[in-house]
């Protein structure tokens, strides 16, 4: 059974058809890559999957369940986590606090019990903090500790954001340009990290990125979007070589791996 299925998804904003009959699927432990020029509707697709936009028509299914009408936070509770193009972190907090915030659903105590200060919540908080530190260590961010997020460089923020989303314990991870602002070497390292994370956490990953070599290397399956529609899909090498894709997108962006 597919983890994520998108059926004939369309959305219009005023007179603009942002997505037109998009179909997409991601199976268990698969990494699915989405490429396409700017304005192709990639992030809009993510916004429909996470629930920020409600599509004009079409359905979104998660593990067989129709989630098209569910609010964002309920979908998150089902196991969908995402990162944002412009880094989705709470800037005023420290790295550890961000990971604590992300463990919102993992905290086993009720919000009111926390406010009342029941003794169990102190133990639970300690456990959450321990897990936050473990995750930071895992992503090579152990040094970060209590540094304020606002002071960190962009590349570190991108990595921290992934750690944060992992802390929210997703089954399906949607990554919106995880490699933006990275050079080829860093992007390669990111690819390694993603492959390892998939294995460690048993994740299904759907990622948008402009680093075509990165996406090609880590993806099991790839889609190319253009003007809100699927231009080509299939194994990465096939999509990459697809004449329409080359014409629409790779013509100017192709580069050596």
């Amino acid at each position: 059974m597919s983890v994520l299925e998108v059926h004939d998804l369309s959305i219009r904003f005023g007179g603009v058809q942002a997505l037109a009959d998009v179909n997409l699927a991601a199976g268990e432990w698969e990494i699915v890559g989405i490429i396409g020029p700017n304005g192709a509707g990639k992030t809009t697709l993510f916004n429909c999957i996470t629930g920020f936009y409600s599509p004009t028509s079409g359905r979104v299914r998660f593990r067989g369940e129709d989630i098209t009408e569910l609010p964002v936070h309920v979908r998150a509770g089902r196991g969908i986590g995402r990162t944002f193009q412009n880094v989705g972190l709470v800037k005023g907090s420290s790295a550890v606090e961000n990971l604590l915030t992300a463990q919102h659903l993992a905290a086993s105590y009720g919000a009111v019990a926390g406010i009342a200060g029941s003794p169990r919540t102190f133990d639970d908080e300690r456990a959450l903090r321990h897990r936050a530190h473990t995750l930071l260590e895992l992503l090579g961010l152990a040094d970060l500790g209590d540094a304020a997020v606002a002071d960190l460089p962009y590349g570190v923020l991108k990595r921290l954001e992934i750690a944060t989303v992992l802390a929210s314990d997703p089954d399906l991870l949607l990554l919106d340009e995880p490699g933006s602002g990275m050079g080829p070497e860093e992007a390669h390292a990111l690819g390694d990290t993603l492959l390892e994370l998939r294995r460690t956490f048993g994740l299904t990953i759907v990622m948008i990125d402009h680093h075509v070599p990165l996406v090609t290397r880590v993806s099991d399956y790839m889609y190319c979007l253009n003007f809100g529609a699927v231009l080509a899909e299939g194994p990465p090498e096939v999509v990459r070589a697809h004449p329409d894709v080359v014409a629409a997108y790779l013509g100017d962006a192709a580069e050596a791996v």
């Binding site: 996470t50 629930g51 920020f52 609010p71 964002v72 936070h73 998150a76 509770g77 969908i80 986590g81 995402r82 944002f84 989705g88 972190l89 709470v90 800037k91 005023g92 907090s93 915030t101 992300a102 919102h104 659903l105 929210s168």
Partner: peptide, 14 residues
């Protein structure tokens, strides 16, 4: 805090 600073991120964290 998350809701105040970044409601979209807060929602995606459940």
């Amino acid at each position: 805090l998350a809701v105040r600073e970044n409601p979209r991120v807060a929602a995606t964290l459940g």
